[in-house]
Nucleic acid binder design. Sequence first.
DNA 1: TCCTAATTTCGCGTAATTACGAAATATGAA
DNA 2: TTCATATTTCGTAATTACGCGAAATTAGGA
Lengths: 108, 108
Amino acid sequence: MKQTLAIDAFSALAHDTRLDIFRLLVKRGPMGTPAMEIGRLLDIKPSTLSGHLATLKRAGLVSSERQHRKIQYAPRLEAVNGLVRFLLEDCCGGDESACAGIDLPAQT
Amino acid sequence: MKQTLAIDAFSALAHDTRLDIFRLLVKRGPMGTPAMEIGRLLDIKPSTLSGHLATLKRAGLVSSERQHRKIQYAPRLEAVNGLVRFLLEDCCGGDESACAGIDLPAQT
DNA sequence: TCCTAATTTCGCGTAATTACGAAATATGAA
DNA sequence: TTCATATTTCGTAATTACGCGAAATTAGGA
């Protein structure tokens, strides 16, 4: 994980509506949710929604795939693991015992 | 974890210098690092550093404690766990099997 | 092909964030 | 108390993010 990508991801999540969108997608699961339905559930105007989804996708937090007429968005949960690993990299200078109690996600 | 606090935390991390500071503190470990030393290591001006540390602290990402003349800053690793739990709350609608492969941090 | 639902792009005004010098403040040591 | 180190506050100017209406675009279905 590169620092600039991590910043893009944190920036994307640092916004009320985008955080709502991402958490909704997490709840909805890996099958994905159509863009319009996200907008309907969270009451977001199409142009605003489009921008937010693009931001989330650019940050690697969601994936999209067209299914017939609609574009399904799904959360990329590996991205969350990647962020945590980036944040906790070389934790406590590598001294595991000093890091006791912290859950480091497994390598993906 | 409340949404506004999560946004404060993500905003705090969504900045080059602050991300550098937090990751440095993670590497340095729980004993803490004096503010001035952070500034020296990362080449940050005092007034700029002060603002960034205040932002990180407001977001709950670091703690501070005065030791003699200096203020020691340490990372609050529980905050990272808290953010991950918040992001993945009710993952896949609670269907564990659909969430396979995701590391949910233990409750703190 | 033509139509239509689904999504994106553009442009605007508004609001928030940034770095940092200078000055103020706090605190421990002598 | 007096001094020096450590840190914060304040003001300013430049930059960037924001929502959303209107118009453009895309792609599936008939």
